[in-house]
Design a protein around this nucleic acid. Structure first.
Ligand code: FES
Ligand code: FES
Lengths: 150, 150
DNA sequence: TTAATAAAGGATATAAGGGTCTTTTATTAG
DNA sequence: CTAATAAAAGACCCTTATATCCTTTATTAA
């Protein structure tokens, strides 16, 4: 068949890792035990140093919180828990993902649509609206209740 | 805000170019005039040599047809016109795009879902089903009738 | 105060996608 | 047959995402 092997994806690997890490922190951090980068890397099977970069980025953007030193690690503040999922995607993959034309045309609008606009936009916007309404706390709660894998 | 600049996407650039090229061929090739790579590169604002690679790949996979030499170029056979859009995506971006977990987990299923499975799957499967049912001829017809930009 | 710990930060390496250039092959007009 | 044309093919380079390593900073326990 001669395919390209390019294996495209909706979310970058960094973004996938970021989302899983946030859920992991929500699930495993307690007041007495903060989650370390090493622990997360092991638990999620993500390269530690790469994960660390992503965690730094999330911390800088105040999506997660951290403290250094012995028994240091990552956790979620109340403010963190109210961050919505679309924000994490925006930080990791940029603001364009849910705005850009599927065919890469410079503009995306219903008045000047590309050939696949109406096919793509219905679902694109649908997912975007869901992620905009879903915050970390809510996501973590469902994950816990349904015993969902990360 | 410190974003990543990674600008993720649903379809790879190669795939976007491929889809636009196919529509262009459908719109501009006649029995007396085949569409050349140069003409397409100009018309679609795609780097010529890169486009050529993509056209080669589409030809090898019998999505489009071509002849060499003077007045040579690309065109669509009756068989080509019946190719569905999902097939082009499959050739360019691999078969995984509409099957893989959005969070990159090794399995995607409703029985062992990831945290975003139900949010994402509706989007993913919805688009996939539309593209599976839409062939090149049909797409080109709509593009022509609605005077849609490529 | 010191040693240990863990995140933050910076520099660097690797792989893949995107893009360019040159040569070869097929086709056609003259 | 020859010259011109245009796709096919292969080699190559650039940029970016992914991944690794090393040093610095902050925190804690002793
Ligand atoms: S114009 Fe292409 S998706 Fe909207
Ligand atoms: S398991 Fe992640 S999208 Fe289905």
């Amino acid at each position: 068949m001669t395919t390209n092997q390019s294996e495209s994806h909706v979310l970058s690997k960094s973004c996938q890792y970021a989302l899983r890490a946030v859920v992991y922190i929500a699930a495993h951090s307690t007041t007495t035990h903060l989650v370390g980068a090493q622990e997360m890397a092991d638990g999620l099977d993500i390269p530690k140093h790469f994960l660390s970069k992503i965690l730094q980025q999330l911390t800088r953007n105040q999506v997660i919180s951290s403290t250094k030193g012995p028994h240091g690690g990552f956790f979620l503040s109340k403010e963190n828990e109210r961050i919505t999922i679309d924000r994490i995607v925006e930080i990791m993959d940029g603001p364009g993902l849910f705005k850009a034309c599927v065919l890469g045309l410079p503009q995306c609008s219903s008045t000047k649509p590309c050939p696949l606009h109406f096919q793509a936009v219905e679902y694109r916007d649908g997912l975007y609206n869901k992620l905009k309404r879903l915050n970390i706390k809510e996501l973590a709660l469902v994950v816990h209740q349904e015993n969902i894998k990360i």
